[in-house]
Design a protein around this nucleic acid. Structure first.
Lengths: 195, 195
DNA sequence: CAAATAATTTACCAAACGGTCAAATAATTC
DNA sequence: GAATTATTTGACCGTTTGGTAAATTATTTG
């Protein structure tokens, strides 16, 4: 009979509630109920609602990032890298849509502000590091002549991240069709990457 | 000395606050203060916070939609239609970014649910009508052989709406570059449409 | 097994919030 | 100008919320 990990139960419950209602409309009572504890216990493990949300946010982006990029390091052929990236993403969305929801449901509000200086600064930093990862991948493609040299790295990264955020609401078949359009726009052949 | 339109003042203040903080974190006290009235007065003009938000939401989508589609009716050459659409959009974002913010900051939470049945049903209906408009435009392009016949209307509409939503946060130069990528992906020549 | 420590719950708090209603003020009507 | 109507405000309400502290229970340690 395995021992309960209460802190993790609370965090998982929090992720589910934040993903469903967004941060502002989520109550600690809801989270506690879902975790099967009383609300005050949340404060034994987490100093505040916000810090709970920060951990949920960071873990979610970590999870997405690890899934997308972890296995690309083994790959040296750029097209194969992209293949793994998009395949990995499609699979990820199917089983972990909640992650995309947690990020997207609050992303615009969080990202609408300066790099730091307010309560959302750390949240923005984390998301920006994710964007940076995508930019690096695009830069790599340009260096390897697999992508047009005149394509804007930043704009492409932003578009890809935005497309990925659509995983919060869209069906996989729609996502695949959208990815096809974007890949074409990046001067790639969708058929070689998606199937 | 023109007469004050208090109801409109309240609605405009509400739009600004909702666009900045999102619905859930916006308080009627904040809105009243911004409008220069006392909170109770909001209830003289609007039955509830939610109905105030619904009006702000609908007016914002109306404004976006009118700006995008109003002048396309005069145009019969499809490429010129698109030119007007994207030009109009870029100009709109420059002067009315608050509209995009108001929609995007709450869109994922609102759209994450069935067509009707809950408090957000009417909000979804309105946004879906906007999506429908984009779909019709794409269908028109396919009929006129200006777009590939095998392109998915739904996926393309969703991608375009998502791209437009990026106007909430992105600079115009980034938006233009993103539009280029998408237009290429739609088998169009960006230079003929953007400049 | 008792003491110490960790985990959990109960009970409570102040502040905040959407909303209500009567009173006050302003504008309009005759 | 008085009466009526419209608009605005002040005062208040009940509920909810993030959070706190003490009490209780469970687990660990020696």
């Amino acid at each position: 009979m395995s021992k309960r990990d209460t802190k993790r139960d609370i965090l998982q419950a929090a992720k589910a509630v934040f993903a469903s209602k967004g941060y502002e409309a989520s109550t600690l009572e809801d989270i506690a109920e879902k975790a099967g504890v009383r609300k005050a216990l949340i404060f034994y493990y987490y100093p505040s609602k916000e810090s709970l949300f920060l951990e949920a946010w960071n873990e979610s982006i970590d999870e997405l990032e690890n899934t997308l990029f972890r296995e690309l390091a083994d790959e040296s052929v750029y097209i194969r890298k992209l293949k793994k990236l998009f395949r990995g993403y499609i699979d990820f969305v199917m089983s972990r849509r909640e992650v995309m929801k947690l990020i997207e449901i609050d992303r615009v509000r969080i990202m609408d502000g300066p790099q730091d200086g307010d309560e959302w600064g750390r949240f923005r930093l984390r998301y920006n590091r994710f964007l940076q990862k995508i930019e690096e991948l695009i830069e790599e493609g340009k260096e390897k002549k697999a992508l047009p040299s005149d394509i804007s790295t930043k704009a492409t990264a932003k578009l890809l991240a935005q497309m990925m955020g659509m995983g919060a609401l869209e069906e996989n078949i729609t996502l695949e069709r959208i990815i096809r359009i974007i890949l074409s726009g990046m001067a790639l052949e969708p058929e070689r990457i998606l199937l």
